[in-house]
Simulated scan of single mutants.
Amino acid sequence: MRTSEMNAISAGMETGRSHAFLMKRIRKMWLLYAMLVPALILVALFNYIPMYGVLIAFKTFRVADGIWGSTWNDFEHFRTLFSTVGFTRALRNTVIISLLRLVFGFPMPILFALLINEMRNGWFKKTVQSISYLPHFISWVVLAGIVGEILSPQRGVLNYLIQLAGGKPIYFLISNDWFRSILIATDIWKDVGWSAIIYIAALASIDPQLYEAADMDGASRLRKAWHISIPGIVPMIVILFLIKIGHVLNSGFDQIFNLYNPLVYETGDVLDTFIYRIGILNARYDFSTAVGLFMNAIGILLLLGSNMIIRRKSEYGIW
């Protein structure tokens, strides 16, 4: 018997054994798989079946004709993307705000988790952690009102302190010079505590014997954090960084929509708010769908590219 035939037979036997093992596992844990079925049905109903609506990005959509009855437009919406008033500005702002969030916002939960991990007083540690993630449960509608009061030029605390120091009140929320900084600062304030939870959990899984060995060698807290804590959570950092890269064109509709106004469109208008105005307010559903499809396509390419680069340089990655 030739080698190729023997390899084929061996591969077939291996496949059969894997299939038998899988079926045995399903029969043994059928209850857990049955509990998974409702979640799969919900995902199919609300995430996959509606995806047929993406067809209107390739059509001149008319509500009276429906999705299937509308005529194809030969990629007209995609050809006119960059010549549309406001699109290039929204794309530029989206990229800038997302990069600022990656540079300033992404490391903050990591640093906060490391600080929490170094606290020795259990009561104080739990109190700080609880207070830090409370803003996550407040909607941006409420937080936008709080931020507006804090930054108000007439009654805001911040402007009151500026005037005490001899300065003039600043209209923060209508200033293009300040708006992006406010977005980054409030985003960190809202989510730093909640985002740190996953890093705190990863730090808790590090073998305590590594810290004990470092103590015996006389390592300081800073050295233990640098040589033990950070390397221990690198896989989690990489995975969350890749997820952030995949969402680089989704810059947070809720936050920006509740904080921005026409005076800061130059620096605050992003693709999400642009789609809202074009699609919902102007009823250009087909064009706004094309913009959304463009965003998702770029996000997938960025995710695949960054994951491939990281996999080549290290053993970590999403797949």
Rank of each mutant, 00 (worst) to 15 (best):
residue 178 W to G: 02
residue 75 F to N: 05
residue 130 S to K: 07
residue 40 L to G: 14
residue 139 S to T: 15
residue 132 S to K: 03
residue 82 F to R: 09
residue 195 S to K: 04
residue 249 L to Y: 06
residue 254 D to F: 04
residue 69 G to A: 07
residue 25 R to I: 06
residue 31 L to C: 04
residue 248 V to N: 05
residue 298 I to P: 06
residue 162 I to Q: 04
residue 239 I to Y: 11
residue 193 G to R: 01
residue 60 T to F: 01
residue 162 I to H: 04
residue 45 L to S: 07
residue 233 I to S: 00
residue 43 V to Q: 03
residue 157 V to H: 06
residue 32 L to A: 13
residue 164 L to W: 11
residue 257 F to Q: 12
residue 41 I to V: 15
residue 190 K to C: 03
residue 118 E to Y: 00
residue 139 S to C: 10
residue 27 R to N: 15
residue 12 G to H: 01
residue 191 D to M: 05
residue 196 A to M: 00
residue 224 K to A: 00
residue 146 I to E: 07
residue 180 R to T: 07
residue 6 M to V: 13
residue 182 I to T: 14
residue 181 S to N: 14
residue 309 I to D: 07
residue 319 W to E: 11
residue 142 V to S: 12
residue 67 I to R: 03
residue 126 K to W: 02
residue 165 A to R: 07
residue 194 W to K: 00
residue 242 L to K: 01
residue 238 V to G: 04
residue 137 F to W: 13
residue 166 G to S: 12
residue 112 F to W: 11
residue 185 A to T: 15
residue 223 R to W: 09
residue 232 G to R: 01
residue 269 D to C: 07
residue 130 S to A: 14
residue 203 L to A: 01
residue 125 K to I: 02
residue 174 I to V: 15
residue 108 M to K: 00
residue 118 E to K: 04
residue 241 F to G: 10
residue 295 M to Q: 15
residue 49 I to S: 08
residue 204 A to G: 08
residue 126 K to A: 12
residue 108 M to G: 01
residue 225 A to C: 11
residue 302 L to H: 03
residue 205 S to T: 07
residue 92 R to M: 06
residue 73 N to F: 12
